[in-house]
Design a protein around this nucleic acid. Structure first.
Lengths: 230, 230
DNA sequence: CGGGGCGTTGAAAAGCGTCAACCCTTGTGG
DNA sequence: CCACAAGGGTTGACGCTTTTCAACGCCCCG
């Protein structure tokens, strides 16, 4: 096991773009209050932020980089329930229900759960914000269940690429921080199948791949047709 | 489209067992306050309580019967994100994210969202209760994603049967209110595969089937071994 | 008595997984 | 500076699980 998975460093917070630090649109304004009470920390690629079953003493928000939230079956099969990207929160539970690891070197804000509970006690609007955040996560989870249970490999990858593009500022080129294996464990596929569908989409001219992690969306409507609903 | 999906009837609430009306163990005591402000309604099998995209004006709790929450792809493929059984809540969103229909004739408590918001405003503990409820739903959803993405048909059905038995009071015989098709759409399978796995488990002596909806758990540890983690 | 919904079973097909080989990049140590 | 190892990615061949398509039985209700 890793000895110390969380290491505190001096904050590079001044170099962050304001857009990243601003609350997410649907989160409501009050979340900005949290910026006062957080600590900036860093985690390195593949380090765990917390593990399934740990007491949930902190809440986190990604500033730079990306996290993955995963669960394991006893025989080692893994599923990734989500990726946490800049601006997103993770870890609002009494006891963590999954393991959170860094997909790439990442910089985070860490909020003490006690402090948050205190703030919520004072400002009831903040509680509504948290409730909305978790309801949004639930909505996302239900979309993902539809994907996992009812979409084929190409539809899964198309949905994934469109979602990543949207979260990445709706650009037509995305830089994927996670490996093919991470994507496979997120979509309920194997790395080989993910790789094959990437190749297939490229050969059809739907996407470009200048490097394996650099995806250009050449034909968005084709992707949307594949993704069907999302 | 159904003209009136919600019909109010005189309450048969006196006939309910106290266990059903009591708050769920992990929900905290304050939820009992809601019993004062609700209306008892009935829905008939296959009637919709609300539909994806409707404004979320009510919150519901099942007293008798069962509901299914489902989403559709444009071509008709369906996924059921969950079943709502006696004691469970459903519909805590600004805008409903899925369609809720009755799996069997059902009796529900209906709470106005406005009234709930007012109560939460007065009692901050209530907000924490709701947050915990939604976090629990998120936990369940993530387990289900692991199931959908990484378990095979037999493992899926074993997990499902054990979960249903637990929710049904941990008995060794369960009466399934939903059809094979509902189960299939919940587990990301087809009705044929569900039926085949039922037959296979019966032929292995793991379960009994006196009727297609009456399942006896003969060999719980075999089911648990199949379900692996859940 | 008849019809429709639901469930079961069989045979064939397809999609995805498994296994294996190979390439490329990166980083490490001699 | 180069050699080599390790991790990630791609591609091919093959096989298995699940889906698809079809037929049929059962039960309930009109």
């Amino acid at each position: 096991m890793l000895a110390t998975v969380i290491r505190t460093r001096v904050s590079p917070v001044d170099s962050l773009s304001p857009a990243v630090l601003a609350p997410r649109p649907h989160a409501g304004g009050s979340l900005a209050d949290f910026d006062q009470i957080g600590t900036v920390i860093s985690v390195r690629r593949n380090e765990a932020l917390f593990r399934e079953g740990d007491p949930g003493r902190f809440w986190f928000r990604v500033l730079i980089g990306a996290l993955r939230s995963s669960r394991l079956l006893p025989d080692g099969r893994r599923h990734i329930s989500g990726f946490t990207l800049p601006g997103d929160f993770v870890g609002l539970e009494d006891i963590y229900r999954f393991t959170a690891e860094a997909v790439s070197n990442a910089t985070l804000m860490r909020y003490s759960r006690q402090t948050i509970d205190g703030l919520v006690e004072q400002q009831p609007g903040l509680g509504r914000c948290l409730l909305k955040l978790v309801c949004g996560d639930l909505d996302t989870a239900q979309s993902q269940m539809l994907l996992l249970g009812r979409k084929n490999a190409a539809e899964k990858l198309a949905s994934f690429l469109l979602t990543m593009a949207d979260r990445n500022g709706k650009a037509d080129r995305i830089s994927l921080p996670m490996t093919r294996c991470d994507i496979a464990d997120y979509l309920g596929l194997t790395t080989e199948t993910v790789s094959r569908v990437f190749s297939q989409l490229r050969s059809e001219g739907v996407i470009t791949l200048r490097a394996s992690s650099e995806v250009g969306l050449k034909n968005r409507s084709a992707l949307q047709a594949l993704a069907a609903a999302a």
